[in-house]
């Protein structure tokens, strides 16, 4: 007689697993990836491949030889970190830059805390901020490398729109002049914009990815909407008060990795809250910190820092933002 399986209920399981979720995020990133390959050619491919490969390798080596635990590189999570890191770097970063970033991302930000799901900070962002602080010159060199598909636009701009604005304001120019001089129309930035990290060339491609993630129920919309909404409201207020010094909402939302950060980085499972309430607070927090850094801080961009700062509050948010329980409590002894 054949041996039956006996197990506690339930006896069926949804098709979703860690691997499929991570794969969905990578699929959602692919439109942005394709756009950036179209514009930056080989350098974009190079960054993504080096990033993904290094992350997977580092995770493998640590799990196999340092921790002696089960190797879990098959779940795509390390590869995803590598891809995200690559998309967050300037297009003509050298290969060793992302190599270092990947080692920091996986080795320090992820595995030190116990691997998948245990990390407090988003590994890709830790990698990026590490590089930003260690190699400021390379990380803010936004000149565009040679592409296979396009030519003639090389060396058009050498800084991000946000950096240009910040420098211009520091030099005493007025905001409308700067914007006019550089032709930052919202339309241009929505479809294709130069001067930014690999992944944020096209806002439309990112939004496409966002819709895919929503349809596949990988993420919930609260965090990205809260971030973008907060940035919109805050910048609108500042812009209305003093249009000469504070950039407007459309400009702020479409530059400096707000979309990339809010859709793909801030929604990272392990480092974002679990409940709707927590997610909204977290998103609003990121929005506020981003705007404050941009307007008053010394860095032109602030999304990475804002997300990392809010990452630290996630355990607290999880503790205090409980889901709505079914039925109220009765005290009848």
């Amino acid at each position: 007689m054949r041996k039956l399986i006996v197990s506690p209920a339930p006896h069926i399981h949804s098709k979703e697993n860690t691997k499929s979720l991570m794969r969905d995020v990578i699929i959602a990133l692919s439109p942005s990836l394709l756009v950036s390959i179209y514009f930056f050619g080989f350098s974009a491919i190079k960054l993504v491949i080096v990033g993904a490969f290094t992350c997977v390798l580092v995770e493998y080596l640590i799990q196999k030889y340092l921790l002696h635990t089960k190797v879990t590189i098959n779940d795509y999570s390390a590869a995803l970190t590598g891809v995200l890191l690559a998309l967050n770097l300037p297009p003509n970063s050298p290969w060793w830059l992302i190599l270092i970033g990947s080692i920091v991302a996986i080795g320090i930000a992820k595995m030190t805390f116990g691997g998948l799901g245990q990390n407090v900070f988003n590994p890709a962002l830790v990698g990026r901020v590490f590089l930003l602080i260690s190699f400021p010159a390379l990380m803010t060199d936004w000149s565009i490398p040679q592409s296979w598909f396009r030519d003639g636009i090389d060396a058009v701009s050498s800084a991000t729109p946000l950096a240009l604005v910040k420098e211009g304001l520091a030099a005493g120019q007025s905001l409308p002049d700067i914007l006019a001089a550089n032709d930052f129309s919202a339309k241009q930035m929505l479809f294709v914009k130069m001067g930014g990290s690999v992944g944020e060339v096209s806002a439309l491609a990112l939004i496409l990815g966002f819709i895919y993630l929503l349809v596949r129920r990988v993420i919930k919309p609260y965090i990205p909407v809260a971030i973008v909404g907060t940035i919109f409201v805050m910048t609108l207020i500042f812009n209305l008060i003093d249009p000469a010094h504070f950039t407007g909402p459309a400009f702020n939302i479409l530059t400096g990795g707000v979309l990339l950060g809010s859709i793909f980085m801030a929604t990272d499972y392990a480092t974002s809250p679990m409940t709707t309430k927590g997610m909204i607070i977290y998103g609003v927090g990121i929005g506020v910190i981003t705007v404050l850094i941009r307007y008053f801080g010394s860095y032109p961009e602030g999304v990475s820092f804002a997300i990392l700062i809010m990452n630290a509050t996630v355990p607290l948010l999880n503790k205090y933002c409980k889901p709505a329980r079914f039925g109220k409590e009765v005290h009848n002894g």
Partner: peptide, 22 residues
Amino acid sequence: AKINNFEGYSSCKVMSSLYIGD
């Protein structure tokens, strides 16, 4: 001899609350 295969959280407590054992 084992006469069936248990699946689930590997704990005697879980197993014994479910059935007599494998």
